[in-house]
Nucleic acid binder design. Structure first.
Lengths: 217, 217
DNA sequence: AATTATTTTTAGACAAAACTAAAAATTATA
DNA sequence: TATAATTTTTAGTTTTGTCTAAAAATAATT
């Protein structure tokens, strides 16, 4: 499997699990910043290999084989992210691009040894689940901070947007995975939130709150 | 820089430092298991980029820039090998192929953090020196076991051949980096050696002895 | 339902890196 | 030194993955 094939599989995986349906050629092209014609070419190739279900003009989905392959790439990506943060001291906003490269290293033995070395983590530094060596994913119960009601408490367990920009904002506000957040009130005009973290009150926009996953406590 | 360009640079580096002269198109082709015509194509490309000195029919050598780039690839390769052995528990005969992939990961920050994580090692698991972040190499004094004289002692500090076959043979004989070897005698007929390791006497062929580096004690 | 707009595919081209086969240059040999 | 052998380069293909532009299919609108 080439790097390019792996990147397509991964993208299709993320797009289909997000919306849980078939995904369009254009959606893939947009996500991968490439042209629809290039996508069509690759879809044919992946279909020939039995990795995707593809019918012209009808969108694509992953076959079981394709889904497992995609999960293994995601597994590698997220394990390497844990390594970068836990062992090498990178911050959570720096690891994505490097993991994009490391996820293509081919050695099952390597990734399983890395898994053990990291004590078999179940989530990456952004709170996303890490598939185990059989591809199983343990989903944790979580909801968006924006969906809480007044005076509820939540533990921050993940981020929806993993952009460096957003993560650095959270660092600045001292919000991290594990932070206990109290939902104080919502401003009806702009849906901004008043919350309390680390003993400090602060106001965050609805956009911020819609990208933070919390677990109710 | 592409993977392919990096592999050529690395090969030219190894071939030129071994013989300390210009290297021929055919020598590169043989080492890389490719065709001479492919090598010619790449040499032109690398020359255009200022990484090699190349004149038609005259062989090639690395420019200063090319040499530094090659050393950085070697640095990455060897640091990853240390990681695989020291942290993940791979044996020294398993790491080469994986490091061949990892050496192409592009992030200076990553490799320097890895270097620190590993406590800035100066040699890889086969005893080969690891260039520092400026490309400097500390050469250790060493000689081939086959060059010792009777009743001299040597500490095993490296292997010339790093093939899995040879390394597994050494494991079987319980010879490792750090092993103290006493040179007992040499058989004039076939140049085989009588040595003593770990308190046990054994006979090794001249081929074996010509692939083991030792430091006199 | 017919027309327009959008999406998707096809056709043909290109760059990178490999190859084969033939030509050119170098080296070795008689 | 002429000729033969070897090495190296050139010329022309191939494969992978991309692109543009045009054609075909689908979706949206009047």
């Amino acid at each position: 499997m080439t790097f390019s094939e792996e990147n397509y599989l991964k993208t299709i995986y993320h797009l289909t699990t997000a919306s849980d349906s078939e995904v369009s050629t254009n959606a893939i092209a947009e996500k991968m910043e490439t042209k629809a014609s290039s996508v069509t070419d690759m879809l044919k190739k992946l279909a020939d290999k039995g990795l995707v279900n593809y019918k012209k003009y009808q969108g694509v989905s992953l076959t079981e084989e394709g889904k497992l392959a995609a999960k293994m790439i995601v597994r590698k990506h997220r394990l390497w992210e844990v390594f970068l943060v836990e062992k090498l001291g990178f911050s959570w906003d720096e690891v994505h691009d490097i993991a994009e490269q490391l996820e293509h290293i081919k050695s099952e033995k390597l990734i399983n040894k890395l898994d053990d070395f990291l004590d078999n983590p179940t989530e990456d530094p952004h709170g996303d689940p890490i598939p185990d060596r059989e591809g199983r994913i343990v989903k944790i119960e979580k909801q968006l901070l924006s969906e809480l009601s007044e005076n509820q408490f939540g533990i921050c367990v993940g981020v929806k947007d993993t952009s460096s920009e957003f993560l650095k904002y959270l660092d600045k506000q001292e919000i991290a995975l594990g932070s206990k957040i109290e939902f104080l009130s919502k401003e009806s005009f702009d849906l901004s939130l008043r919350i309390k973290v680390n003993g400090k009150e602060l106001t965050i926009s609805n956009k911020i709150a819609s990208n933070l996953f919390v677990k109710l406590v």
